[in-house]
Simulated assay, not measured.
Amino acid sequence: MMRVFMMMLCSLMAVCSVSAQISRQEGTDRQAAIYRLPPFERAVRCTKYFESWHSEKHYPYVGYGHRLQPGERYSARTMTKRQADALLRKDLRKFIAMFRRFGSDSILLGTLAFNVGPAKLLGGNGYPKSTLIRKLEAGDRNIYREYVAFCNYKSKRHAMLLKRRKAEFALLYVP
């Protein structure tokens, strides 16, 4: 009887072990799937994830973080997910174009500018040119620390912004 019980227990453990390996592999496959997307699509998905949906209480932001400009008539109340997606893509293309001269880093910089504003990177509106941009202009692409340093809000470091910067860098930095 004990021998039968032990055989059943070993069989059950083997099945559970294989099942756990398959589950871990599927999780890894899902995580790896984002790296099979083009970099622009990765930027869109990452931004949507961290921005999430903006309702009326987030005014002057709508959709997935679009800041309303003078004369725009978008409403968080009536905006559809499809409209918000199109608006996000338009915004990201605009910001990426601002950094086109940085080649493969333009998507990374455009995504950051969407969140913090281009003046904090390029200088202007009372901000000096960022160390990140100065390093890239000097030809130094060792920018991880400078990139993830953009994780402050109202002069305080925020863990979620740090998590966002690390995710953006992992997804969008091309070595």
Rank of each mutant, 00 (worst) to 15 (best):
M1V: 07
R3V: 12
R3H: 12
F5P: 01
M7N: 08
M8F: 10
L9W: 03
C10R: 09
S11Y: 06
L12E: 03
M13T: 11
A14M: 14
S17E: 07
A20G: 06
I22Y: 06
I22S: 07
S23C: 02
S23L: 04
E26K: 14
E26Y: 09
E26Q: 12
G27R: 13
T28Q: 14
D29V: 08
Q31L: 15
A33I: 07
A33M: 10
I34A: 05
I34E: 06
P38M: 12
P39A: 14
E41S: 08
R42N: 08
R42D: 11
V44H: 03
R45E: 14
Y49C: 06
Y49A: 08
H54E: 10
H54Q: 15
S55P: 06
K57Q: 10
K57F: 04
K57L: 05
H58A: 13
Y61D: 13
G63H: 15
G65Y: 09
G65Q: 02
Q69C: 10
Q69G: 05
P70I: 10
G71L: 13
G71E: 03
G71Q: 03
S75E: 10
S75M: 05
S75R: 08
A76E: 07
A76G: 12
R77M: 14
T78R: 07
T78E: 08
M79Q: 15
R82S: 15
R82W: 10
A86R: 10
L88F: 09
D91I: 07
L92D: 00
L92E: 01
L92C: 05
L92F: 08
M98D: 12
F99W: 00
G103I: 11
G103S: 09
G103K: 05
G103L: 12
S104F: 05
D105A: 15
D105K: 13
S106K: 11
S106P: 14
I107E: 00
L109D: 01
G117I: 02
K120M: 14
K120H: 13
L121R: 01
G126M: 02
G126Q: 02
Y127T: 03
K129T: 14
S130M: 06
I133C: 03
I133F: 01
E137P: 11
E137K: 12
G139Y: 05
D140H: 09
D140E: 09
N142E: 13
Y144S: 04
R145F: 10
A149P: 02
C151Y: 00
N152Q: 05
N152T: 11
K154T: 08
K154A: 15
K154I: 09
S155K: 11
R157Y: 03
H158M: 08
H158S: 02
K163V: 00
R164G: 05
R165G: 04
R165W: 04
A167I: 00
E168Q: 15
E168V: 04
F169T: 08
A170G: 04
L171Q: 02
L172D: 00
V174A: 07
P175A: 08
